[in-house]
């Protein structure tokens, strides 16, 4: 007979995995509080001076603002396009539908470095200079698959007679969309928007290919800064990024539960 492992050993193993996953984040957060002017863990003393020091680095603040704007624009446009495309894919039969589905799924499969190179080539070929808009377009392509995964999941099993009922009561198709369809699939749409935001905000690989002196997003800024200096400025700005992402994840959790988001990605 096979001996059963005691239950606590499973729990212990899970705990180890969690610690392993969370450790880098905790290290970054804590070492941003160090009083030394080099990064060290555990931190020596506790201070918030490195956060205050960020004020003396306007380039970080500019990058932060740029990243937020790019992520915001990406999120809104990718969500609109992704939602409309999801509706088309789920509800209508049309020529080339499978091609579109494949195409839309491909950024999930292609390594983002490859995608970055491709985008760079493409932009130089059609003559688009590096600009926030160019970056937003790249990020939209990168994030539409995420949006579509989530929105398609919320559309599958959507009972269309609900929309027919609204039409029957006198609602035109625009009204039906905004008053009935959208509210019902809103959790998928919101989750998609937040995923798009986070993906764009955190993206380094694609952004690296589109940098110019005036288009430097926060991850790129941190990356380049680190090549010359290694002080707690890095960890403090990283901590801010982490916290922002955490806040957004909590919002998703509130809206529809993280478990559901990942289940529906399947």
């Amino acid at each position: 007979m096979r001996k059963k492992l005691p239950k606590f050993s499973l729990h212990f193993f899970c705990l180890l995995v969690y610690i392993f996953l969370a450790a880098p984040i905790v290290v970054v957060l804590l070492s941003s509080l160090t009083t030394t002017d080099y990064i060290v863990f555990p931190p020596k003393g506790i201070t918030f001076k490195w956060y205050a020091e960020l004020v003396n680095h306007p380039e970080f603040m500019q990058s932060f603002t740029l990243s937020i704007i790019v992520a915001f624009g990406t999120s809104i446009i990718a969500t609109i396009i992704g939602t409309m495309a999801s509706i088309a894919v789920v509800r209508y039969e049309f020529k080339g539908k499978s091609v579109i589905t494949q195409l839309v799924g491909s950024p999930l499969l292609i390594p983002s470095v490859v995608f970055g190179v491709a985008l760079l080539q493409f932009y130089s070929w059609i003559g688009i200079a590096a600009s926030p808009i160019a970056l937003v377009i790249g990020h939209i392509i990168l994030t539409i698959p995420f949006v579509m995964r989530l929105v398609v999941a919320s559309l599958v099993g959507f009972d269309r007679s609900i929309e027919q009922a609204a039409m029957n009561l006198g609602a035109g198709s625009l009204r039906v969309f905004f008053q009935i369809t959208l509210p019902i699939i809103k959790s998928g749409v919101i989750a998609g928007a937040i995923f798009a935001f986070i993906t764009s905000f955190d993206d380094l690989t694609v952004a690296l290919f589109i940098v110019s002196t005036d288009v430097v997003t926060l991850p790129v800024r941190i990356y380049t800064y680190m090549q010359y200096q290694y002080d707690p400025i890095i960890t403090s700005i990283s901590s801010i990024m982490i916290l922002l992402t955490v806040v957004l994840m909590v919002v998703i959790e509130r809206v529809l539960g993280v478990g559901k988001v990942f289940a529906s990605k399947n």
């Binding site: 009972d159 007679s161 609900i162 027919q164 009922a165 609204a166 039409m167 029957n168 009561l169 006198g170 609602a171 035109g172 009935i180 019902i184």
Partner: peptide
């Protein structure tokens, strides 16, 4: 179009909002 016909429909699966 259906929204101009003034018909009241009751669906098998209720179709409530």
């Amino acid at each position: 179009p259906p929204n101009k016909r003034e018909m009241g429909m009751v669906f098998q699966n209720y179709a409530l909002f």
